[in-house]
Amino acid sequence: MESKNHHIVSALVENKSGVLARIAGLFARRGFNIYSLAVAPTNDPNLSRVTIVVDVEASLLSQVVNQLDKLINVVEIQELKPTDAVERELLLATVECSLSKRTEVIQIVTALGGEIVDVNLSGLTIEMSSSPDKLDALEELLSSYGIIKLQRTGRVALPRLTKESDTYTNQLKLA
């Protein structure tokens, strides 16, 4: 699932109709598969942040990023290295789970930091928000019980804050 060719593109775009189609079109044109995509308005309702994870070689990606940057509706765009970014993703999974296995499943979910959000006699729906690799681990564990339905949001990401010391150094440089 996690491939070393995964790259994160984070874009600040105008919150207007058709913008997503323009962005997706540039990936589709080159036959690049968008692995995951998350879009929502920011604190400024005129802008949305789009986080795209794409499975492609870095050199090819930078071409697409340059093209994306030329779109009138794209205000700002950057590639995020996983090491320089905080990433989160939300997973919902409905798992088949008889009463006898229930405690076991709940233990796994709680141990990994997930929650049970819905339940009936034959199954459970689990929610977990975490880094993508932890969700991968949870998914693998749950698969042995039988996943009936699963939805992940695709990751959202923001650049990591610079270290206080870096900020301090920068301020010194500026002064």
């Binding site: 930078s62 071409q63 093209q67 030329k70």
Partner: peptide, 8 residues
Amino acid sequence: IDPAEIGK
């Protein structure tokens, strides 16, 4: 003038 042409 087009940054997308640079290094393409």
